[in-house]
Design a protein around this nucleic acid. Structure first.
Lengths: 149, 149
DNA sequence: GTGGGTGTTTAGAATGATTCAAAACCTCAA
DNA sequence: TTGAGGTTTTGAATCATTCTAAACACCCAC
């Protein structure tokens, strides 16, 4: 069963929500508490299951709503931005992707070896990586005028 | 309309497929040609549309099959690995994620500022980034025995 | 060339995550 | 008390992807 939020956490929640003119609700408290309770990157459905233990009437849609709200006010991060269709590219050289949010276009960004090495060095021992995915999200200046491919 | 593969490209395809004991087929040629023709990271559906121009009978399922095969034999990259449920975490400090493929568990990896700076410096001018997502995929040693969390 | 066998393609159904729509709810303020 | 807002609920709708089963195509042994 999920602990209630402590004072400090309640404040964080209240403050973050206040920005968008939004309110603290019992559902939001529970969902937030679930996220804080076990930091194992739960899926929406996992959050739903856990939250229901303290609030049986809670609906899945509400969990989606809460999470979206939290992400919107910077209280929580989404681990998997890229929930659109999978994309493919025949560029096999190690490279990152830059996704221009205004156009939806994806650009390749070359990755020098030393960057990959540095990244790999951040991993605790015992972690063996087969792939590193890096994606930037942002905007390109004058992106409105880009016509190139 | 998509160009046919040139000799060199045909060889690449043939060779890559040969590894898994798989064959070059007209459909695979067309799909591969589509990927090479316009390197704009198309979605499956976009590939499907383009490929149909040269091969009207082609089915969507086949495009999925071809792409999966290509990824399997390292001919093509999938831009969006993470096609499972979106996950959420309340860790707001900049960090990457390591996904252990054997357990499905996701670990946070701290990201020192200098790494982020370096990464940002790879972008061409005019690219302004709001978020950088980094995810490692691999295995942790003894992951079979992990019971924590 | 005939008959399997194997891997490939096809169409359509099934799945699963997510979003949408509409009604019911709550709360606060006039 | 009424009304306006945002919020929650339920269930339906959407959309990418995967699955299933049937039709194909190719190749090798006979």
């Amino acid at each position: 069963m999920i602990q209630n939020l402590n004072e400090h956490q309640k404040e964080d929640l209240q403050e973050a929500l206040a920005h968008g003119g939004q309110k603290v609700t019992p559902q939001r408290e529970v969902v937030y508490a679930v996220l804080l309770a076990k930091r194992d990157h739960p899926t929406v459905d996992e959050v739903f299951q856990r939250a229901r233990e303290s609030m049986p009437g809670l609906s899945l849609a509400t969990v989606y709503n809460c999470l979206e709200t939290f992400v919107g006010c910077g209280l929580v991060r989404q681990v998997n931005h890229e929930r659109e269709s999978t994309r493919y590219c025949p560029n096999l050289a190690p490279h990152a992707h830059f996704r221009d949010e205004s156009t939806g276009r994806v650009h390749d960004i070359e990755l020098p070896d030393h960057v990959l090495t540095t990244l790999r060095s951040l991993l605790p021992s015992g972690f063996e990586t087969e792939a590193i995915e890096i994606s930037f999200h942002g905007h390109t200046k004058n992106s409105r005028n880009h016509t190139s491919n």
